[in-house]
Amino acid sequence: MTDQLKKFLFEDRSVRVQAVRLHETWLHAQEHHDYPPAIQRLLGELMAAAALLAANIKFEGSLVLQIQGTGPVALLVVECQSDLGMRATVKIREGQEVPPDGTMQSLLNTNNEGRFIVVLDPRRKVPGQQAYQGIVPLEGDTVAEALQHYMKASEQLDTRLWLQADGQHAAGLLIQRLPDHGGTAASESGANTLEHAIVMAETIKPDELLNSDIDTIIHRLYWEDTMIGFEPSQVRWHCPCTRERVGNMLRTLGEQEVNEILAEQGSVQITCDFCGKPYAFDPVDCSGLFTDSRPMPEQDPPTVH
């Protein structure tokens, strides 16, 4: 497994440093998609950010980072489970051109109505509990800046992020001040440690973040500091789509609508928005959906070449 996230603490335990580097997970996210370079960069950065933030979830569940746009890109979504299983998708407006040098603002926030949404969704909710949802304006020129604004406004945490992505790797570095436990001295110590951590991290170059392993980056930045390291966590691609779930979704459309699709197209073709896997239902399959109340049996999706 090449995809890891590692956590570190400064000796005074006032500031955490986390780093993530994705390869296999990022390749899976692109496997059935042909994203333009500008979208590839934004989505990869959002995936790296989601892994960094999900690693600090205190419950079993998921973190969803969602950017709703008003430009050529309508939606960017990354979901990361507390065990760091991830999936991601993009919605591009039909007929809209995506320039290779497009930025987050030009692609998603053309009239200043774009929104950054963060959802925390526990898997086991108490009765009446809803998923937490935070919504902030799409501020900043990059995914990192937008998330920093969110963390400061919604979580009251001093957080800095460095994110990079290309066709092969997505990587990120997070520095975050931890809540103080003590008096003024602890607060001053934490502020000094945070400033030092950020000053050193500002020296990292984009290519270095993308192409160096995590231990090399941390050693290069903080070799003079005493750092407390933790066991690495593995990051992986995880899309829970199945033929059974797709069949149950078709049931919710209703028999009349499914029959109308069959009459027009001869079969019902569904492609998962996240992993891109195709699912095909012929007339016999569709008839079985509405004559048998039992769940559809699991089958492997057809292979597309």
Score class of each variant (00 low, 15 high):
residue 213 D to T: 08
residue 117 I to K: 09
residue 108 L to I: 01
residue 137 P to E: 02
residue 164 Q to H: 10
residue 224 E to S: 15
residue 120 L to R: 13
residue 205 K to S: 14
residue 167 G to R: 06
residue 207 D to I: 12
residue 101 D to C: 06
residue 116 F to L: 15
residue 164 Q to Y: 05
residue 229 G to R: 11
residue 180 D to S: 14
residue 180 D to T: 13
residue 227 M to N: 02
residue 203 T to Q: 13
residue 129 Q to L: 09
residue 130 Q to L: 14
residue 123 R to P: 02
residue 105 Q to S: 07
residue 202 E to T: 01
residue 161 L to M: 04
residue 151 M to E: 14
residue 136 V to Q: 00
residue 146 A to I: 03
residue 205 K to H: 15
residue 185 A to Y: 09
residue 201 A to V: 01
residue 196 H to P: 10
residue 168 Q to C: 09
residue 188 E to R: 05
residue 108 L to V: 07
residue 118 V to P: 10
residue 137 P to A: 02
residue 220 R to F: 07
residue 125 K to C: 05
residue 223 W to Q: 15
residue 174 L to I: 00
residue 138 L to P: 15
residue 144 A to R: 01
residue 101 D to S: 11
residue 168 Q to S: 14
residue 177 R to W: 10
residue 122 P to R: 04
residue 166 D to M: 04
residue 148 Q to K: 05
residue 130 Q to K: 15
residue 202 E to M: 01
residue 212 S to E: 05
residue 198 I to M: 05
residue 197 A to I: 00
residue 176 Q to G: 04
residue 124 R to F: 12
residue 110 T to W: 08
residue 204 I to L: 11
residue 158 D to W: 06
residue 195 E to G: 15
residue 140 G to I: 01
residue 228 I to S: 06
residue 154 S to G: 08
residue 112 N to G: 09
residue 139 E to D: 08
residue 141 D to I: 04
residue 223 W to F: 13
residue 208 E to P: 12
residue 105 Q to H: 08
residue 214 I to G: 09
residue 156 Q to C: 06
residue 193 T to E: 02
residue 161 L to I: 01
residue 154 S to I: 10
residue 199 V to A: 12
residue 171 A to T: 01
residue 146 A to E: 09
residue 136 V to D: 00
residue 169 H to T: 13
residue 201 A to Q: 01
residue 158 D to E: 13
residue 108 L to N: 06
residue 181 H to E: 14
residue 163 L to R: 02
residue 219 H to G: 08
residue 188 E to H: 10
residue 212 S to Y: 12
residue 187 S to W: 11
residue 216 T to D: 08
residue 181 H to F: 15
residue 194 L to H: 04
residue 191 A to Q: 13
residue 189 S to A: 08
residue 141 D to S: 09
residue 197 A to R: 00
residue 135 I to H: 06
residue 105 Q to T: 08
residue 223 W to C: 13
residue 154 S to E: 10
residue 130 Q to Y: 15
residue 121 D to N: 15
residue 162 W to D: 08
residue 173 L to V: 01
residue 123 R to I: 11
residue 195 E to R: 12
residue 214 I to F: 02
residue 206 P to L: 01
residue 146 A to F: 00
residue 173 L to M: 03
residue 186 A to T: 14
residue 187 S to D: 11
residue 113 E to L: 09
residue 155 E to Y: 06
residue 229 G to A: 13
residue 160 R to S: 12
residue 138 L to W: 08
residue 179 P to F: 05
residue 150 Y to P: 11
residue 161 L to T: 05
residue 213 D to M: 07
residue 113 E to V: 11
residue 218 I to E: 01
residue 167 G to C: 03
